[in-house]
Amino acid sequence: MKKVIAIVGPTAVGKSALGLKLAQKFDSEIISGDSMQIYRHLDIGTAKDSPKELQEVPHHLVNICDPDQRYTVKNFQEKARQIINELNTQKKIPFVVGGTGFYLSSLINNLNLGGEMKANKEIRQRLLKIEEDEGLGRLQEILKVDDPKAFEKIDIENPRRLMRAIEVYQTTGKSIVEQENGNKWADFYLIGLTDNRPKLYERINQRVDKMVKLGLVDEAKYVFDHRDIFIQSKNAIGYKELFPYFEEKASLESCLSEIKKNSRHFAKRQFTYFRNQMDVDWYNISNDNNYQKTIEEKIEKFIGGYHG
Rank of each mutant, 00 (worst) to 15 (best):
Asp209Thr: 13
Leu190Gln: 05
Gln170Leu: 12
Tyr103Trp: 00
Val13Ile: 15
Asn110Lys: 08
Val145Arg: 15
Asn158Glu: 13
Ile285Val: 15
Tyr189Asp: 01
Phe243Cys: 01
Ala165Lys: 03
Ile166Asn: 08
Leu143Asp: 09
Ser257Trp: 02
Gln170Gly: 06
Phe102Pro: 04
Tyr201Asn: 07
Leu20His: 12
Gly114Val: 09
Gln125Val: 08
Glu157Pro: 01
Lys25Asp: 09
Pro94Trp: 04
Tyr273Glu: 07
Gln232Pro: 01
Lys144Thr: 13
Glu56Arg: 12
His59Trp: 14
Gln277Trp: 03
Asn235Phe: 06
Lys298Thr: 04
Leu200Gly: 07
Lys184Ala: 02
Asp218Pro: 02
Glu78His: 03
Phe246Ala: 01
Lys240Asp: 05
Glu241Phe: 10
Glu178Asp: 15
Phe26His: 10
Glu134Asp: 11
His41Leu: 11
Ile64Lys: 14
Lys174Met: 05
Thr72Asn: 04
Lys301Val: 03
His60Asn: 07
Tyr291Gln: 08
Leu20Asp: 02
Glu253Thr: 14
Glu86Leu: 02
Phe271Asn: 06
Lys15Val: 12
Ser106Ile: 05
Ile93Ala: 00
Phe188Lys: 01
Ser35Pro: 05
Ile84Arg: 00
Gly115Phe: 03
Asn284Trp: 09
Ile285Arg: 05
Gly192Ala: 06
Arg160Asn: 15
Glu56Trp: 09
Lys74Val: 10
Gly182Pro: 00
Leu42Asn: 09
Met36Gly: 08
Asn205Ala: 14
Glu247Ile: 05
Ile30Thr: 06
